[in-house]
């Protein structure tokens, strides 16, 4: 494992934990997009560019937009 790969893995786990801990849904969605972006880079480093493109497009792109749309619709107040 190269240092870059290890650093990204650590960042990925940190992002995942932060998403679960955040009370503010809006912030959670942004961190989740960052998680997806890191995951996309990791897929590329693991030699799966096809999955990387899909992860970047779906995870960081469309899913975040749909989440933002849902927040805009519901007001996004934490329980």
């Amino acid at each position: 494992m190269t240092p870059v790969f290890s650093a990204l893995l650590a960042l990925l786990i940190a992002c995942a934990v932060v998403v679960a801990c955040l009370k503010n849904i809006f912030q959670a969605v942004i961190v989740f997009a960052a998680y997806s972006l890191i995951m996309a880079v990791l897929w590329q480093l693991l030699g799966a560019p096809d999955v990387a493109i899909t992860e970047a497009a779906v995870g960081a792109g469309v899913t975040s937009l749909l989440f933002f749309g849902t927040i805009a619709k519901t007001g996004g107040r934490p329980q």
Partner: peptide, 28 residues
């Protein structure tokens, strides 16, 4: 990504999602 789906990474699903993201950005 759609057009080069058979020769490079990507394909119908990934390219279609990116294409749709353009429309969604336009709507936003």
């Amino acid at each position: 990504i759609i057009a080069y789906g058979h020769v490079s990474p990507g394909g119908g699903f990934a390219g279609g999602t990116v294409l749709a993201a353009g429309f969604v950005l336009y709507a936003l």
